[in-house]
Design a binder for these strands. Structure first.
Length: 193
DNA sequence: TATTGGATCGCC
DNA sequence: GCGATCCAATAG
């Protein structure tokens, strides 16, 4: 079922608000292999040139300059020689920011996800940032894709109430104290507690 | 041009 | 706990 696609204007706001508001929405990716979708259960905000953990902190570089660009496009980067990380660019053009997608609950295309992840274990298909990009087939090819018009997009989720927990971000050195990680309280698809 | 280490994962 | 395995960023 295709629910309403989130418009580009949704992302052109305060990064923390976008990070919180993306919880419960459905990340979707269509490739020649099929469609895969998951409910976003965990995000992190990377606020730009005042946030020491953000790629934008030291100014524009070839990789990070996309964070100053138009909101609502994918920022994908490659780390540790093997993993792809997915962000969505936020804020108005000229102000850097992005929301890092950390975990999903598999919703559609689970067979395809298992194939890509080379596991039958449904619990570990998309419960961390590198796993979800692998499960959805997201690679550097998707860097810069417009989420309003491309094959990668985010839809409204089902209306349901949940509490949001905020904590320090995972796996970074600088900016550890900032409470910029958000997740759906009690969700079992978390990357970690 | 060389070096360092990373918004990680999975196996030891 | 540690190796995998690439490349962006920074220093020289």
């Amino acid at each position: 079922m295709m629910l309403r696609k989130i418009p580009g204007s949704f992302y052109a706001r305060d990064t923390r608000k976008v990070a919180r508001n993306l919880l419960g929405k459905i990340l979707s990716c269509k490739t020649s292999e099929g469609i895969a979708k998951g409910r976003i259960v965990e995000t992190e905000a990377y606020c730009g040139d005042k946030d020491p953990a953000a790629h934008a902190y030291r100014g524009k570089t070839p990789r990070s300059k996309i964070m100053w660009g138009r909101a609502g496009v994918a920022y994908v980067y490659f780390v540790y020689g093997m993993h792809h990380m997915l962000n969505v660019v936020t804020e108005r053009e000229g102000t850097p920011g992005s929301v890092f997608i950390r975990a999903l609950k598999p919703i559609e295309g689970i067979r395809l996800m298992k194939q890509r992840r080379k596991t039958q274990d449904a619990k570990t298909l998309t419960n961390s940032p590198a796993k979800l990009t692998q499960a959805l087939g997201i690679t550097m090819q998707d860097n810069g894709v417009d989420l309003e018009s491309g094959h990668l997009w985010i839809e409204e989720g089902r209306k349901e109430k949940f509490d949001i927990v905020s904590t320090g971000r995972v796996g970074i050195k600088a900016g550890k104290k900032l409470q910029l990680r958000f997740y759906i309280k009690g969700d079992e698809h978390m990357s970690r507690i």
